[in-house]
Design a protein around this nucleic acid. Structure first.
Length: 431
RNA sequence: GUGGGAGUAGUUCAGUUGGCAGAGCCCCUGAUUGUGGUUCAGGUGGUCGCCGGUUCGAGCCCGGUCUCCCACCCCA
């Protein structure tokens, strides 16, 4: 029985062309992070189950996790996300100078049924600031997020950063007359607003509000608010510090010119540990309906480890979902997909000069030129085909005569022009 | 976990009422034995996902099963 040629369902296996695209995306993410003074970190792929059981959310751990008992009878899990590990790292290093600004590109795992934009093993870019409760942190991470989108040349018309606040919404729901115990149901109803037909949604919301029509009506008004200075909202939230925070943040976004950021009371986010401002990045088109990125403020995560209370704010961004987004808008340059693996191909006319070719390759490589030497041993014509197939533009042919004289012929494939010269001369031309 | 679609050459797919297993691209050889692309001539490549049933005969019909894709749930 032959082994299967397929990897396990949802596990990634990337061939060079796909890898180049992914690398293009991750390099860009790292670049934007570094340019804002963030430093890279990483944590373990396997974690104790309890780390996520506490705060990540029931479904994520219960139904969508790769968890098992290891040989030491420990309940462990392949990390479904990064933030709890980050919180532990912060909690365990007493010497850290706060605030810290860190980013990571972890592989994460979720046992879900694969489909477009969702697999079981995925890269999730994470960027966080810990140890500052100032709204400047929220602003900073959203500036980086917006900068990321700009670095990919995504026009602000094709994406939207919707934001809200858990603290604000909790208080607003209370003032709307929604009892505390109904909040999580109402939140998930709010979350589904754009996915359901209007009437069906109204019924669903009414149900989640305990059947109280007046309350449900108020919640509808709340969700349709488009600005934190909306007069109806200001009236509802009179004297509320949570509203003041939301207004202040709205002003910060406006003054920094992040036009793609929109106050959206309907943004709730799934993870249980968010406490303050929450936000997500959505494609405004129809092709990628999942959010590309979700984040927010978490006040109580580091405290779980018995360290002092350290507040954090950050986001996770799916590299795969972002890549699909970029591809569907044609934002992955052809030069990335069609990149040549080398600048020069060394064709070998006779097996007696392999060593000479090897030395030539080394000299060129030492000058920073990317050189691929023939290893096929096929006839010269095939070697040229190989170079051409690889989009390599320069081919140097090494034969007996060249090995003796040290003068090589180099052909530039796009126009077929041949030049001859010593190693030094060729290097000068190539640079 | 729920629902829909699809499995035929390396790949993308066609395959009529059940009657010899096909095409484009890729790959290989030659034209061109020290020079690629374009062109021309030729060629390799198949457990028709798997198991069973019906039939003189199954890629096609029936039953089962596996896998992949898509949507829902949830989420990056």
């Amino acid at each position: 029985m032959a082994l299967s040629t397929k990897p396990l369902s949802g596990m990634r296996q990337r061939f060079p062309e796909q890898f180049r695209v992914e690398k293009f995306v991750t390099d860009m993410l790292s670049g934007s992070s570094v340019s804002a003074g963030f430093q890279e970190y990483d944590g373990p792929v396997i974690e104790p189950l309890a780390l996520f059981a506490a705060k990540s959310g029931g479904e994520l751990v219960g139904r969508q996790s790769y968890s098992f008992t290891d040989r030491g009878e420990r309940e462990v899990i392949l990390r479904p996300e990064m933030t709890p590990s980050l919180a532990r790292m912060i909690a365990s290093s007493g010497e850290l100078q706060l605030p810290v600004r860190w980013f990571s590109m972890p592989l994460c795992y979720r046992y879900e049924r694969p489909q477009r934009g969702r697999v079981r093993e995925f890269l999730q870019f994470n960027l966080d600031i810990l140890g500052s409760s100032s709204l400047a942190s929220e602003l900073e991470v959203i500036l980086v997020l917006n900068g990321i989108m700009k670095s990919f040349k995504a026009p602000s018309s094709i994406y939207r950063i919707g934001w809200s606040s858990r603290r604000f919404m909790t208080e607003a729901l209370l003032r709307c007359g929604v009892k505390q115990e109904l909040h999580s149901g109402v939140f998930s109803a709010i979350d589904k607003k754009d996915k359901m037909k209007e009437e069906a949604w109204s019924d669903y919301l009414l149900q989640s509000c305990g059947g109280d029509k007046k309350v449900a009506g108020t919640v509808v008004s709340l969700v349709s608010v488009e600005s934190p200075s909306d007069t109806w909202l200001v009236d509802l939230m009179a004297e509320s510090p949570a509203l003041r925070e939301v207004q202040e943040f709205d002003m910060l976004l406006e003054k920094t010119g992040i036009s793609s950021a929109v106050f959206s009371p309907g943004v709730v986010r799934g993870l249980d540990y968010y406490t303050g401002i929450v936000f997500e990045l959505m494609d405004t088109g129809r092709e990628n309906r999942r959010s590309l990125c979700g984040g927010g403020r978490y006040d109580n995560l580091v405290g779980l480890f018995g360290a002092g209370r350290i507040s954090g704010v950050g986001f996770g961004l799916g590299v795969l979902t972002l890549t699909l987004f970029l591809e569907s808008y044609g934002l992955v340059p052809d030069s990335v997909r069609q990149a040549a693996p080398a600048d020069v191909y060394i064709a070998i006319a006779s097996s007696s000069v392999i060593a000479t070719a090897g030395l030539l390759a080394e000299s060129l490589r030492n000058s920073g030129i990317r050189v691929m030497m023939d290893v096929s041993g096929k006839k010269l014509g095939k070697q040229f085909s190989e170079a051409s197939r690889n989009r390599i533009t320069q081919v140097i042919t090494v034969g007996v005569e060249q090995a003796e004289t040290g003068i090589y012929k180099m052909k530039y494939l796009p126009d077929g022009k041949v030049t001859a010269g010593s190693v030094e001369e060729l290097i000068r031309i190539l640079k």
